[in-house]
Write a protein that binds this DNA or RNA. Sequence first.
DNA 1: TTCGATGCTGTAAGCGCTTTCATCGATCAC
DNA 2: GTGATCGATGAAAGCGCTTACAGCATCGAA
Lengths: 341, 341
Amino acid sequence: MSSDGRADFRPPTLDTVAAAAGVSRATVSRVVNNSAKVSADVRELVDATITRLGYVPNRTARSLAKRRTDSVALVLREADATVLADPYLAAMIIATSRSLVGTGVQLVLVNARDDPEHGTLVDYVRGGHVDGVLLASMHADDPLPRVLVEARVPTVVGGRPERPVPGLAYVDCDNVGGGRLAAEHLVGTGRRRIASIAGPPDMTAAADRLTGYHRGLAHAGLPIGPIAFGDFTRLSGERAMTELLERDPDLDAVFAANDLMAVGALRVLRAAGRRVPEDVAVVGYDDVELASLTEPALTSVHQPVSEQADTMTGLLLRQIGGAAPGDPVLLPVELVHRDSS
Amino acid sequence: MSSDGRADFRPPTLDTVAAAAGVSRATVSRVVNNSAKVSADVRELVDATITRLGYVPNRTARSLAKRRTDSVALVLREADATVLADPYLAAMIIATSRSLVGTGVQLVLVNARDDPEHGTLVDYVRGGHVDGVLLASMHADDPLPRVLVEARVPTVVGGRPERPVPGLAYVDCDNVGGGRLAAEHLVGTGRRRIASIAGPPDMTAAADRLTGYHRGLAHAGLPIGPIAFGDFTRLSGERAMTELLERDPDLDAVFAANDLMAVGALRVLRAAGRRVPEDVAVVGYDDVELASLTEPALTSVHQPVSEQADTMTGLLLRQIGGAAPGDPVLLPVELVHRDSS
DNA sequence: TTCGATGCTGTAAGCGCTTTCATCGATCAC
DNA sequence: GTGATCGATGAAAGCGCTTACAGCATCGAA
């Protein structure tokens, strides 16, 4: 009665197949792995037995024997759900998943900030359940990349780490260039009192965009307008925009460090009776799908998410294969002009 | 030279620790697993040795020995990126990830439609790299749930499967109720020529919403208005709305089976010179964040994503623990009234 | 005929961990 | 003092697979 529950069920193993086919385990293994040195008839026999028995190799056992799991972790370093709701991160997850298709490598999603102890993640990773780690959404003070490198875990970071870690590969988008692009665009369309909603200063992406934006203004000989900081959420964008309007009611443009905050700005501007783009031009960043759906549609700096994901997984897999980490990669961005500017 | 690459690096094992501490492997294992029968001083000694050596247990080996991986797969059955861009799915991924935090169970993300052969996924899952499977975004003809149940893989489906599979647990939201809610709301606000943008008929969520919508209209004694089908993408929503306007230029309301399509409808309506909600009321479905960001903000049927994810993982973990699959769960939905209706 | 290739196949030693079972003092009741 | 009991530890047998290495025909060349 209680003995036929699924707990007792055991799928066929290599031994089962070997016994049924009258060959050795090794031979079956060779057939399964398409190893060359098996005669045609034996291979056929074994194949037949495999399908007859419905045998499926046990990946865990294989991993143990080969010391390789064929899976990589994507770890997101964000504390709360609000930030995780950022469509850019979602896009990153999906893109990463897609770029792994066909490689036989599986994606393990790890939300690390949520772990009770900090050590857990490193232990997990070092515990050998994944061959390598993709790191996204990092903050400046994060010790993780260094720890991983020291533990000799193949690692690729999405975005530039705060300070260089020797032997750490990363793939960044040209945030400085993007910020500058935004500034130049606004200047180029005649705006002169440009404000900015910056992202959290502890994230290099945010800092770099701000730097680029400053350079763009400086290059045009314009003074740096008021700046308010947000945390990449829409709500923080609304707060920042409100603050900016108070500080300079006559501003004629605003550059937000991501689209979500730009959307917040759009709302506040509308509520304050400003017309976009007539009175105030708005430029966002990321170019998530949302940007094309707002009213007016948002001009935004496009990030090549898929390309970034592809590059990251490519570097990681090469590293897992034994190659050196390789140099940092910087991907170009471009401005997508829509109705808000 | 070439012999000190990372390929040759081997982290300490149980044996290493045992030898260093002068005890047996078994004892170290007991300490690591907090098994009770270890004397205090030995435990202390072993703990010290562990930290000194920086030992981390190898999860793969443990999995093999315990026949348990402590990870589950979330498989998404969608072919192309467009559909995967649906924020509802993204929310589902994040929510699932979050609901697993603290359980010690890892999430493996599998995008199954992309696999070259259809069999691969089943093999992967049966291959024992995961203890169970969460299935999302399923289509009617999908044989996967039945296959999984037959292979005795603990499985929980998100959404109602097309036809009942004995021994298959699923967690659905009340789509019939939601459709009805939408219809009643529109009727209740005086709309009489109500059209609908339905989702793909091969997904039960879409079909059920349509059913509920029909019932709501029937209950109010209203005729069923024109219906156009989309595939849950915004573009398909635009196409559908265009078609509906042609078929009935005087319609005064439209119910879309998800928010993305509702957004598409909003655009087309605006382009056609209809005011929302004055001329045409619009109701969406899912209540993703986007719904509150459109202009006008979208009335939508709210789906309890987090609750669904929590329930699914709960059921799955129980099932992995040996419990019976349990009865299907139906979660209630509610209408969130905003400006578009 | 003999020897060395050559090509398959089997043997067996791991991979690093868990867990049962046996062992061995120490403790206790009598 | 004796046997029963108990708690802590070790020995060893797996978990299911890979992969040297060895063995054994078979074949061609000398």
